[in-house]
Design a binder for these strands. Structure first.
Lengths: 239, 239
DNA sequence: TGCCGTCATTTTGCATTCATTTTCACCAAA
DNA sequence: TTTGGTGAAAATGAATGCAAAATGACGGCA
């Protein structure tokens, strides 16, 4: 879904049916943040852009709504699901459980092809870090963890894991601001690779859960700071 | 979604929009197994039954397809996703990770209302067992575990957990045949309740994971037996 | 100036229509 | 009998049409 680098040609991505294609493109648009959170999704504009009528677009919107990326307001159209800082905790809490399972299974089942791809991504992460390229780092990080989830050989796990990653993806802008997290994140990745190479499943599971916990806490902290510097939380407007 | 007892009035269940209503009813129909796995879903019949046109029905079908309960074949209609014994393992594998988290969190966070509801369901489970009422037992079991997931206070967790429960639900007929599992299942539930009452989170997590593992293994064994007694697996037909 | 009610415009939700594709009964030929 | 072709009927996928609701501009009035 998300390319490592920042160049997305908004490609069909080999979708067989029009429905899959529309869902895929709509997902890309939402994940890339083209429409700000809370903004109303313009049916007519997207229809024109995709060259389709409203029927298939609305079908795609219902699917995205079921996933939670879109919120449907009866008779009032679809909006990009608003940013909700309180949603972050539960997502990371759940993701932590999956990370544990991913660590256990990946250590047991990752094959050579998966290991090669993971090593490559890990290497690229290091390079992105040295370039201080946050955008590349974030995307490579997404891809790395997705590869690890796929290396478990449990497609259902990989699929649920990606759904959670996508939920978080929209919040990445907050944590990107604080790039000292990037350095510690990479250090955690080094430890993850050590455990993975050694096929140390308990260790790998723990490392991944810890990595998840720290990432989540950093993100929650970042949002708290944003809220502090931007105290429009209550009913004050003029102040 | 699923009522403890076997009587479903196919109720609207307080859905605000027509879309939610259709999705809910369609889900009930699929979960109740009204249409056999692999059977084609008759659009026209359901439209007449719900008193709606094809547009909202098809929107609901796309949503159910995204969840995996329905499979969409291009130009060839929707079918109830066929039974696939190889899908059971991955589902229980993933569910195990969630059970662990549910145990940890429920022990910490279950409030009085949740505890009361869980005790009641546990009691009803015992009664269903003594009546050898497999149908009631299975439904109460579903509701019990769903309550426990909700008791974690993490709605996302409860939602993902229910999605997994629904995936398994269609396979219950296989394991229902072997009701010695019911007795051991209830014994496991007794231990689960002991750990829950004691708020012993590590113990509860372990008990739940073990319960999940044993249930999954029983189901896989049941399917293996079915396959053995019914060896149409390969390309033999006359034999 | 600020607030509220009215009406035209836009948007939404669903039904209906239409072009394609598939299905299947029927029949001819091997 | 079995295989393969033919065409009518049915089903699918998507566009269009239409009634109901929401939006927003306008003007009256305090």
């Amino acid at each position: 879904m998300i390319r490592p680098a920042g160049n997305e040609p908004e490609a069909p991505e080999s979708a067989a049916t029009l429905h899959d294609l529309v869902v895929g493109q709509l997902r890309n648009i939402l994940l890339e943040g083209e429409f700000a959170a809370g903004r109303r999704i313009p049916e007519a504009e997207l229809c024109a852009r995709f060259g389709i009528s409203r029927t298939p677009l609305r079908e795609a919107l219902k699917v995205m709504a079921a996933e939670g990326l879109v919120t449907l307001r009866p008779n009032r159209g679809a909006v990009v699901t608003p940013i909700d800082a309180t949603a972050i905790g539960p997502i990371f809490e759940l993701k932590g459980a999956l990370e544990g399972l991913i660590g256990t299974l990946a250590a047991l089942r990752a094959n050579d092809a998966a290991m090669t791809a993971l090593e490559e991504h890990h290497h690229a992460l290091g390079e992105a870090l040295s370039r201080r390229d946050q955008n590349a780092y974030t995307r490579l990080n997404y891809a790395f963890h997705q590869l690890l989830a796929q290396a478990t050989g449990n497609p259902l796990l990989a699929q649920n894991y990606e759904a959670l990653q996508q939920k978080i993806w929209r919040y990445r802008f907050a944590v990107n601001e604080f790039d000292e997290r990037l350095v510690t994140s990479y250090q955690e990745h080094e430890h993850i690779m050590v455990a993975l190479r050694a096929r140390a499943r308990l260790d790998l599971a723990e490392r991944l859960q810890e990595h998840n916990r720290l990432t989540g806490e950093a993100m929650i902290r970042a949002f708290a700071e944003i809220a502090e510097h931007n105290p429009r939380s209550k009913k004050e407007k003029s102040a």
